[in-house]
């Protein structure tokens, strides 16, 4: 009896020790900084300046950091826009079909149907360069020269009456352009902005429960059985 208990306690101590060792192992591995000397794993290759230069396309909206060398005028932008952009965005940025409108909409942000354009909504001018450069023209993105992108940026800003016709966009001029809607953004999430309480019974007067809108018979819903719907724009 005694021996057996003693044996058990040895086993249990050993188990505890093992468990402790295992736990230490886990702590070491999972600890966020313990192993964290740069190059600890040593996988991959150190990025060369040339590699970085090829992909380092981002331009910061706030201060224009990352804007490349180059320059573009409003008038040159007009002709690049006609060639590269007008098919979707319209000659004057009015937007063809359901493609985005780039100009106008000033003063509509409180309206029932606000028009969010570069002029009425975008808070930072360098973002316009960044976006055209990275994502446009849609069928052949990131193929325009920096000069062409500067020219398009200047033209679109001019379409929105933000810069004069003789404006020339470059890495110094663009960050100085103050966008009309710049000050209307709150960059800190104020949510939660509702504070409902979980009432469980008699939470409302039945007479007050009224259907205010229904999707029935609105004819906006594509079918959800059979082949894909090809419902046309409304």
């Amino acid at each position: 009896m005694f021996r057996s208990d003693s044996h058990r306690s040895v086993v249990s101590s050993a188990a505890k020790l093992l468990a402790l060792t295992a736990a230490c192992g886990v702590i070491v591995c999972a600890s966020p900084v313990a192993a964290a000397e740069p190059g600890h794993f040593g996988y991959g290759t150190v990025a060369t300046p040339e590699q970085i230069a090829g992909w380092d396309i981002d331009v910061r909206g706030g201060d224009g950091a990352g804007l490349p060398a180059g320059t573009g005028s409003v008038s040159k932008g007009e002709s690049v826009f006609a060639d590269q952009c007008a098919a979707c965005h319209g000659t004057f940025g009015e937007g063809e079909g359901r493609f985005p409108k780039l100009a106008g909409g000033k003063g509509t942000l409180k309206d029932d149907r606000p028009e969010l354009t570069v002029g009425s909504y975008w808070p930072f001018a360098p973002t316009l360069f960044d976006y055209i450069n990275r994502a446009m023209p849609m069928p052949t993105p990131h193929t325009l020269s920096a000069d062409d992108v500067y020219a398009l940026t200047a033209y679109i800003l001019n379409l929105n009456d933000i810069v004069p016709g003789d404006f020339v966009a470059d890495k110094d001029s663009l960050p100085k352009v103050k966008m009309p809607n710049h000050d209307s953004f709150l960059w800190k999430d104020p949510r939660p902005d509702t504070a409902a309480r979980p009432c469980m019974s008699n939470c409302a007067n039945p007479a007050d429960i009224k259907i205010t809108s229904t999707a029935e018979s609105r004819n906006l819903t594509p079918r959800t059985t059979g082949p894909l719907d090809t419902m046309q724009p409304k």
Partner: peptide, 24 residues
């Protein structure tokens, strides 16, 4: 600093009734 990319300024921001917008 944040980049204020197109997708976090002209899109994916929330326009309020008073004309201001919430970002991030």
């Amino acid at each position: 600093q944040p980049w204020f990319s197109r997708e976090e300024t002209s899109k994916y921001t929330d326009l309020m009734a008073d004309g201001t917008s919430r970002g991030f």
